[in-house]
Write a protein that binds this DNA or RNA. Structure first.
Lengths: 136, 136
DNA sequence: TCTTTATCCTATTAAAACCATAGACTTTGT
DNA sequence: ACAAAGTCTATGGTTTTAATAGGATAAAGA
C-alpha cells in the first residue's frame, strides 16, 4: 500500500506545480485544497524541502514553492524520498540493497526472480513520468 | 514492502512445485529447507489450502501438495491471496476497489493517474508468470 | 484399540510502522 | 513590537505484521 505520506506529498507537489507560481504557497492553503491534515502535511513538506524538491520562506507571506521545473522532477526520485525503496524486497533494490538472511543463493530464489521483474516494470513507469505529466 | 507471509508462501509453493511429486510434503520439511518458522508457515499453508492452491493430508505420511499444475498457477491469484490488492491504492484496484475519502474527482487526481500505470505494469508481470516460470 | 504423526484452528502477544496532534521555537515582514 | 508562518521535538493512538502457544482433529499403522 502507498502510504498517506507519499499520497499527500504527491498531491502537494502537484498542487504547487499546478498553481505554477513562484510565489510561496502556505501549508494551510495546500492542506485545505487537498483535504490533508495540516500538521501531518507540515512534516511531509519539510522532508520534501530537505531533499531538494521544495524551497520555503518563513514569516508573513511565506510558504513553500517548487525549486525545479515540473518537467525536471522524476517520479523515481519523489517515490524514493517519500515511499522509500521502489523494490518490494531489499534484495532487488538498486538504492537500498540488502541481502536476505534466509536465501543462500539469490539467483535461485523464486521471489527474487519475480520481484526483479516487478521492480523493473515499476521503475519504467516512474521514469516515464515527471511531475508535469501528472497535471492534466 | 512484500510481507514475509507472501515471501514464505511463494517459497513454499516453489518448493512444492520443484519436488514435483504427488506425495504430500510435510510442513517441517518445507520450513527447514526454506528457513521459515514452522508455526508461521503452518498458517500460511492453511490459507493457501483454503484458497484452492494446495491439498493436504493429515496424519502419518501427511503433508501438503499442489492441487494444480505449476503452469496453471498465475502469480496474479497467488499475490492477491497472500499479499492482498495488487494496486498500491484502493481507488485503482480491480478486485478491491474503494473510493478515496479525500479526492473529489478520481480522474483529476495525480496519484490516481500514476498508480493506475503502476498497477497495470505490475499486473502484466504477474500475468506473465506462473509458478512454473519461477523454477529455474 | 492405542499410539504416533501430522494437519487444523483459535487466541494472544510483541514489535514495528503509520497517522496524527500538541506545543514550543525561530524567522520574517510590517 | 507583533503577527504570521515555517521548524522541530515529542508523544500518543491505531493498525499491521510476525510469530508463538496450546490444544483439537484426523489418519496410519501396530
Amino acid at each position: 500500500m502507498l502510504s498517506k505520506k507519499t499520497k499527500y506529498g504527491l498531491k502537494a507537489l502537484t498542487y504547487l506545480a499546478s498553481v505554477g507560481t513562484k510565489e510561496p504557497v502556505q501549508i494551510a492553503e495546500i492542506a485545505k485544497h487537498e483535504n490533508i491534515s495540516q500538521k501531518f502535511l507540515e512534516s511531509i513538506l519539510l522532508t520534501l524541502r530537505r531533499n531538494g524538491f521544495l524551497g520555503s520562506k518563513k514569516g508573513k507571506g511565506g510558504g513553500y514553492y517548487l525549486i525545479k521545473q515540473p518537467e525536471d522532477i522524476q517520479m523515481t526520485s519523489v517515490m524514493r524520498v517519500l515511499e522509500g525503496p521502489i523494490a518490494m524486497v531489499p534484495c532487488v533494490s538498486l538504492n537500498f540493497y540488502e541481502k536476505c538472511d534466509d536465501c543462500p543463493d539469490e539467483n535461485k530464489c523464486s521471489v527474487h526472480k519475480l520481484m526483479l521483474q516487478v521492480r523493473d516494470s515499476a521503475l519504467e513507469v516512474y521514469r516515464n513520468n515527471t511531475l508535469a505529466d501528472l497535471i492534466s
